[in-house]
Design a protein around this nucleic acid. Structure first.
Lengths: 210, 210
DNA sequence: AAGTGTGAACAAGTTCACAGCC
DNA sequence: GGCTGTGAACTTGTTCACACTT
């Protein structure tokens, strides 16, 4: 039916959505692909083409209604509902994630925290009681979860992900430096700052020797 | 002179480097592009082509020497020296970053922390005294820094980045959700988990309605 | 026999350029 | 007149397939 939409396109939509939210908050009513592109460092043609995969949201000669386009993207991205998120691994990083203010406001509810450390289990963090990770499997049978955020030590990442996937969690945000294997259909995103640093040092080195 | 190397290729090198480090630690002496590819979910041809931009590191009929290739990549990526990193914004996230164990081991030295909060300035975090962000500009004149990690509240991101760039910092790792503008030649990487979540929900929504 | 290195073929993604509409 | 929507042209990136080396 609808032609297949490239992943790169989908990955840019949240960027557009975020900018539109800002413009809306600033009271802007209409915006052109030109302006959107300037703000985001993307060509106007790219933006028009991307949006055209999903519909015809603009008006020739005028541009896009900010609020209309924002609503459209919200629906396309599935942000018109709420999503249940759990965080596994409540070390320094996990704690920062669990308390990240950007989630709630965007429709993501952190509904549970898990860890393996006895001295953490049962304590309260950001208004959430930390649960024993060994209870994860049973918990998932009782309560469906949409997204699992993994912030355990790297060597446990695959185990945790397997548990999540077996229980039907189809989206994983992996903060560990280990890549994880998942069956097709499961969405995985890796956040590894070291990889970014290492590609930047390549470029720093280049420019130094020119 | 040497043909221009695509950014996508450079971005994959750290991935290869990381896997080779692991294989080396496991005592593997030789590895084929086939194996590397399986482990990383990349085609063997891709890996061979990527490496061929930089030299001929393999031996036909045998594969690649793990330690040799690791050393080559280390040199290519500039990981044979040490890089000076500072972190600006020592909230929960900044603290997690400052204490992230993956940096030191890979040649990245966090040499200073900055914040604007009076109750934080002067306190010690991870063995580092937190400095007043208003001292940043002067500090940079005295001590060159390679990479700035920005973890301040979003509205201050551009200001901090401007200060860094004006002082000659050419690599920025931006943890705030705000995109920042930089002159050409400055490397910027954005880490925004919300964008990942939002592209994943698109796919979750798709699969649900099929 | 096995596996690299690489030009050539192919696929994916981006930009152009312009008809069509407001 | 101004800006969208989109096929076509182009550019970039990936995979193929095989000559060549060990």
């Amino acid at each position: 039916m609808p032609i297949e939409i490239p992943d790169v396109v989908v990955d840019r939509l949240p960027l557009y959505y975020r900018l539109l939210s800002r413009l809306d908050a600033e009271g802007r009513a209409v915006v052109s692909s030109q302006e959107l592109g300037e703000e985001l460092g993307v060509t106007p043609a790219q933006i028009r083409k991307d949006l055209s995969y999903f519909g015809r949201f603009g008006k020739q000669g005028r541009g896009y209604s900010v609020s209309r386009l924002q609503e459209e993207l919200k629906a396309i991205l599935g942000l018109d509902g709420r999503w249940k998120v759990i965080v596994i691994g409540i070390g320094r990083l996990g704690r920062a994630i669990a308390s990240y203010p950007g989630f709630e406001g965007q429709g993501f509810d952190v509904i549970a925290l898990y860890d393996a450390a006895p001295n953490l289990i049962g304590t309260e963090i950001e208004g959430q009681r930390v649960r024993d990770v060994t209870a994860l499997e049973d918990d998932l049978k009782k309560t469906a979860v949409d997204i699992g955020v993994v912030a355990v030590p790297g060597e446990f990442a695959q185990d945790v992900v397997d548990t999540l996937v077996d229980a039907g969690v189809n989206a994983i945000l992996n903060y560990t430096p280990n890549r994880v294997q998942t069956p097709p259909g499961v969405e995985v995103r890796h956040i590894n700052p070291v990889l970014f640093l290492q590609s930047m040092t390549y470029h720093l080195r280049q420019r130094r020797s020119s």
